[in-house]
Design a protein around this nucleic acid. Structure first.
Lengths: 144, 144
DNA sequence: TTTTATTACTTTTGTTTTACAAGCAAAAAT
DNA sequence: ATTTTTGCTTGTAAAACAAAAGTAATAAAA
């Protein structure tokens, strides 16, 4: 598993994994929208096709960015959960949010104003920790 | 110019712009490797094809993430420069660097250890400011 | 000074890969 | 038996890719 990387640059290598149209969207849906099943992702606003979703979930699992689990009394539904490695992308996602808020509205007027933007600006570190903590709590709840 | 966005989510909209294999690589080359000409980008380790480079530079210029300029006595070479909007992606790139350093080495052993990682960890905000300042100084120098 | 060569992009061409939408199918749950 | 959930298949469209050709500015040589 030492392949498929364009070169030895850390940033380019990160983009070899998350540099596409869908990967960070899926992680965002898990982290910020509580999505955790195939159906949940499928029904999102972004409307990802099922075959692409399937292949991305597989890739993310292989790279240990997410895990695939089951609930005790349901052998069918897969529960996808962000690992620490996946949660490590939270700062990147938050920075993209800030950049978007400042720079994209001119091109996309109907973009949603996240009411947490002010909170993020006020204390970014704290906000990131909070998001990750909330996610972990929800995840623990789902497992029990 | 209110089109081509998948939905109204700020993060997804950001990824509609920078969510691909090449866009952030080009911005990284400008910001951290001093690249500023078509030839410079072409000769990079990542080996981007000239037609894709051409289309990305056009897109980035249209979105005002970069500008295209000329030096006084050279009508041939285009000088590409990051705008404030483009420089606003610095925190995202730095976060990707940190994530990569922590999480990708297991999949890609020959990845380079950036000796600035420790500096970034010690004072992220300061490092970002410094990178942006250094870029701006270089850019001013190039123009005069 | 005209010709020739080089540089810095830009575009074209043909091929391969990936994305996409719609529909299908298996297993499990109800 | 029917519905739900996951994910595969198929055909089509878009994008990426490599290689090559085109264009205009500059430099170098005859």
């Amino acid at each position: 598993m030492n392949n498929n990387f364009r070169c030895n640059c850390p940033i380019t290598s990160a983009l070899d994994i998350v540099g596409d149209k869908w990967t960070l969207v899926i992680i965002k849906q898990m982290l910020l929208e509580g999505k955790k099943t195939f159906k949940g992702f499928s029904e999102s606003d972004e409307a990802i096709a099922s075959n692409i979703l399937s292949s991305r979930l597989k890739m993310l699992e292989e790279l240990k960015i997410i895990t695939r689990e089951k609930l005790p009394h349901n052998k069918k539904t897969n529960i996808y959960v962000l690992t620490e490695k996946g949660l490590g992308l939270t700062p990147t996602i938050i920075e993209l949010t800030l950049w978007s808020d400042l720079n994209i509205r001119e091109h996309h007027s109907s973009i949603i104003s996240d009411n947490r933007i002010e909170m993020i600006k006020k204390n970014k570190e704290e906000f990131i920790k909070m998001i990750v903590e909330v996610y972990k709590q929800k995840t623990d709840y789902n497992k029990t």
